[in-house]
Design a protein around this nucleic acid. Structure first.
Lengths: 230, 230
DNA sequence: TGCATCAGGCTTCCATACAAGACTGGCTAG
DNA sequence: CTAGCCAGTCTTGTATGGAAGCCTGATGCA
């Protein structure tokens, strides 16, 4: 056993989630215990524990004795995830009292990074930052509990967007982030909440029901089978 | 190895969470790997995996090489948990369109069980049902994602209530559940959301900052030390 | 008495071995 | 040629042993 510091240990989780947020890992990807163990230079035990944690967070699923896979949400689950985000983000915006200038400052800085990623064509950074905006917002508002919840939920919706081919334009998303921040800056929480709901609704509306990476979609639909199995 | 069916396997998690919701397990309780393994007639591996899942859900914490303990939230974390519940439950109530009569029916049935538990003096059932109302509400509204999130959050707030000696009366809580249900029944979502926010606020307001199972509270406060360490 | 040291026991931590189900591909019988 | 079987391989599932850190209490010394 060589002395290479694992570099990972408890952060295997984080690296995987970050990869999902960046779109480098998509729904249905296999995450084998042995593969991860080799990759991170740890034993299978550690890799398995990371997968168990991710399973508890609703990011991966295990198919008994077949393997671990990144979740592949059904259209209904996708809708629930978006609804959950709408509810949470609207709720926090309506509940908070005073945004504070440093919150607005952080968000503006974030939006600048979003624009930079979009301009430079860095798709991974773009995906990550567009999702992370919402996490940052909630975190900046002072609630780490909700921020953690939202991070996992965001990972799910990123997976969904790739699965159902969201065609919502990144620039539009970024613009919407900006007007939300503007509303926060002038203390109009109600307006910020409304804008947030419609923003998330817009992203959701950009989804198309057909996922054409599944060659059986047409047949399945014709036979009226649900896509329940892996 | 005897043939006793484990009875537990993946449900060790559920049994522990249920015990927390019922108030049979309180904040700071030690949950040893070996103890759980013996109790559920499984190996340490299984018990450990259950604890890892619960850790990912924010229910327990591990102190390295010392042991696993049910979380003991600080007052600030407690506030965040209550704020999170307010945001989520208000958000879902404002987002839903039409409650539907079967939803109201389920909630009314739940409230009847609450009253029965209160009347019979069954403290465990009372604690469980009062918390479970909120989970049932969200689940009945059709969002399992949020329901799962809320269950864990409810477990946290139950722990908090015991830790900070909530003196909010069970009967009052139950009454509040009823008026919320009434508002839902007539389709007044706005009113239901407002009632929910104030209901959770009432429970939170019932907390007292002093946790007197900690004999150092007074000294700590006098020295202006945070209660950060375990 | 007061204090430092250290051994022993207790806990989690982690690697590993083996069990057992799931899938694949080839072989064989008809 | 096809259908069924079956061995081989790959995967996760589970138990277990030993490593290593933490805590306690005893012991010895000043």
């Amino acid at each position: 056993m060589h002395m290479q510091v694992p570099e990972a240990l408890n952060s295997i989780d984080r690296i995987i989630v970050d990869a999902i947020l960046a779109g480098r890992i998509t729904a249905g990807t296999r995450l084998g215990e042995q593969s991860l163990a080799t990759l991170f230079a740890v034993s299978r035990t550690i890799a398995r524990e990371a997968l168990i944690r991710l399973e508890a967070r609703g990011i991966v699923q295990v198919s008994p004795r077949r393997g671990w896979f990144v979740i592949k949400p059904s259209f209904e689950e996708a809708q629930e995830a978006f609804q959950a985000r709408q509810a949470i983000e609207m709720g926090i915006l309506m509940a908070v009292q005073h945004p504070g200038p440093e919150v607005v400052g952080k968000l503006r800085a974030h939006i600048i990074r979003e624009r930079a990623a979009i301009a430079s064509g860095d798709l991974e950074a773009r995906s990550f930052l567009l999702g992370d905006f919402h996490v940052c917002l909630v975190e900046a508002l002072g609630n780490r509990v909700l921020a953690d919840i939202l991070r996992d939920l965001t990972a799910r919706t990123v997976l969904i967007s790739a699965l159902y081919q969201s065609n919502h334009d990144a620039t539009v998303s970024c613009d919407e982030h900006e007007v939300i921040t503007d509303a926060l800056a002038v203390g109009d929480l109600k307006r910020a909440a409304d804008l947030m709901v419609s923003h998330i609704g817009n992203v959701e509306a950009g989804l198309t029901r057909a996922k054409d990476d599944d060659p059986l979609t047409n047949l399945r639909h014709a036979l009226k089978l649900s896509s329940r199995q892996e």
